[in-house]
Amino acid sequence: MHHKLSRILAASVLGSALLSGATTASADATGAMVSNPCAGCHGIEGASQGQAPVIAGLSQMYLASTMKAYRDGQRYATIMDRIAKGYTDAQIDAMSGHFANIGWPTNNQTVDADQAAKGQKLHTSSGCAGCHGATGVSMMPNAPRLAGQYAGFLEQQMHDYKDAAKAIPPGAMVMRSMLAAMSDEDIAALAAFYASQK
């Protein structure tokens, strides 16, 4: 966390220069205030250190749409559905802007190299790269970054996409059929591949 606080601190030079116009920051301030409590689960400034997903650096469009999907019962979750119901559209938009403005953090996950290699093959041969890029860094603003995301979370999401009993957003439906034929081992291998990417 050290450099994250210092990143905040680094802003002070500019901050003091801008202080005279302090109240112009109120839109940002709202984003920061509503986003602050997310840190308990998603890490400081969205840079999770555990298996809950990194949310810093995802696109504003994806963040907003997925939060609304959780809220409106369109995306299965263990807990985000209950959390997202606490926010208005305006608050969700403010938070999405807040997290989208932060760079994607570098995580160091230990993954099994063989599994990751198997996952990479599957990623390419199954056509995931079409939307998610060769290494899991998507060029489409509605497809989230998979590279460097936590394996436990990703594995969970793929199982949810696969399970026809679970609600998933329309944009994820294409993956339901793609994942249908995959075994638990395949899914674990894909997750390991994405987790191994930086």
Partner: peptide, 23 residues
């Protein structure tokens, strides 16, 4: 991460902190 901080720290920091910094 660290390089990223150096390169974009000032602007990113302000945007992400959100609250007006008090100096």
């Amino acid at each position: 991460r660290r390089e990223f901080v150096k390169l974009t720290g000032a602007t990113a920091g302000l945007a992400t902190l959100g609250l007006p910094l008090v100096s």
